[in-house]
Design a protein around this nucleic acid. Sequence first.
DNA 1: AGGACTGTTCCGCG
DNA 2: GCGCGGAACAGTCC
Length: 263
Amino acid sequence: MPELPEVEIMARLTRGWAAGKVIRSLDLLDPSVLVAGGVEPDVLVGGRVTSVRRRAKHLIIETPQGDIAVHSRMTGKLVSGSGTGRERFTLALDDGTVVSLRDTRRLAELRVLGPGGAQRWLDTLNLGPDAWPDAGGARWWRERFAGARGPIKPALLDQRRVAGIGNILASELLWRARIAPERPVPALVDREWQRIADAIGPLIDEVIAAESGAEIAYVNEGGSNQAFAVYGRDGSPCRRCGAPIRRRVQGGRSSYCCDGCQR
DNA sequence: AGGACTGTTCCGCG
DNA sequence: GCGCGGAACAGTCC
């Protein structure tokens, strides 16, 4: 599920569940989610959670004893409680709260690392700056994509340029900026970079608002989603100009756009 | 039955 | 060496 907004919501929720509390136990129900190369998970027991934060699509839980880094990939999510099946990992806190990683497709990755290990691991990924909340203006966007030669839509998915944008946000962003997904990056002019810069903040703000809830609440998992103008809406009329939304495949991924008003 | 899927990495090819 | 496309990962849901 998650792109930047969903991971942001999970981080906020998890912060409320776990921040400041002491880890009583960790239970690895599905050992295949644990990425090798870290430390023995039990070293975290007895440690107090000092921070829960998001970087790009990664969720980081830090304690003085060591860190947990979760990447939800396609279907992973952190939830409060356990017991519906599909839990791969649970974290029990000293007040009785249980936080679980639920992941049907089992593509999620859990890392348990020593003190400071999460940041050191993030540093190896060469992630670009986050797309939200502090992306820059037209010049910033143009410079982040300097050297890219292919179409803009797949380029937006490159986490080394700008981090946090996934397949849905890329289509939605280009619709808001009225730019066709096939446009080569070098062909974009400053006016268009400006429209991207202006669109990203409100887009992510709105997705977060639409999906936030007391429990994790992705809007309408699977299927089309009212929060999105083009994603999953092949054939329906564009909200802006009425022309039909089209689905095309780029780089093996679906792109949705309006040929009437995206140029 | 077959394809598609909000992510990422790896491999082969040009 | 780099960039691109496709495959792979694994499970569910049309």
